[in-house]
Design a protein around this nucleic acid. Structure first.
Lengths: 156, 156
DNA sequence: TGTGAAATCTTCTGATA
DNA sequence: TATCAGAAGATTTCACA
């Protein structure tokens, strides 16, 4: 639960810097500086401020899973028997590499997970041989993403 | 639908390079080179190959939304009246900045979306005043993420 | 696929307006 | 918060094993 105490004020220049870097983390600071019209040192200083504030949570290379043959994305709602088994269930899910996200949620299920598989057969295998085998898992509901239309970050 | 024709072969060195950069996109190539024990030029060459293959889909700065006061993450299943209204519904969802993901899915709903809001009140507002107002939306089911336990990319 | 070397550009820091 | 300037380091390309 990373959070910060700093009374963060981000102005329009901070936003422009962040928008550049949210699109391409490797964009040189000097290039952004030339675009915005201030010095590289100023951007450097602002980025340090933003980092200290905790707003900058890091940077990532993004892979296209299709190139590796991963074409089936699904969300799975999981019903657990007892509240007791939750942390163990999460620990078991963490060991399954196909599980990319895991949320405790309000509503019908105890847990909602996002899984990425090569194809439907692979998804079936993960469901039947891995997820259903976890102690405490009583029932699951699967929603396959037929097409992802939006994928973005918080707008700043 | 980005995809590629290249017959991609990634070896152990490619994987090590990618693992470094998936964790921190701004890690200098030369530093990775020293870690792995090959020259910077070789890494440079491999990265170009990986980029041409389409596997590298870019890089992103990651923000911590909590710092900006966004603490409520939710998934919302949407029932649409007619299949006809789907593209219009997606177009309308795209205009709502709180909507970060949108999937056509199998199962009960037509669409599953992920929304990020400041708090429950903000979420209520987005639900009642924005999402429910979209033509064709008949009913929604909301699942608030109480705690996200896993958040990662495809393991390579 | 790999390397070293050279040119160019970037990052980072410190002094200062 | 901004600037400039300099040192250290990174990127990129090329000729070649």
């Amino acid at each position: 639960m990373k959070s910060s105490n700093s009374n963060l004020k981000i102005d329009g220049i901070d936003k422009r810097i962040l928008r550049f870097l949210m699109e391409d983390a490797r964009r040189p600071i000097l290039e952004i500086a030339r675009n915005i019209g201030i010095s590289g040192a100023a951007i450097h200083q602002r980025l340090r401020k933003l980092e200290n504030s905790g707003l900058l949570a890091g940077s990532k290379f993004v892979l296209n899973p299709r190139i590796l043959g991963y074409t089936t994305l699904a969300y799975i709602g999981i019903f657990l028997d007892r509240a007791m088994s939750n942390p163990q269930a999460v620990a078991a899910l963490e060991k399954i590499p196909e599980v990319l996200e895991c949320h405790y949620t309000t509503g019908n299920w105890s847990i909602l997970i996002k899984v990425l598989c090569k194809d439907n057969e692979h998804l079936m295998h993960v469901l039947n041989k891995k997820i259903q085998q976890i102690e405490g898992v009583s029932r699951t509901e699967t929603f396959i993403s037929l097409d992802q239309q939006i994928d973005r970050q918080l707008k700043i």
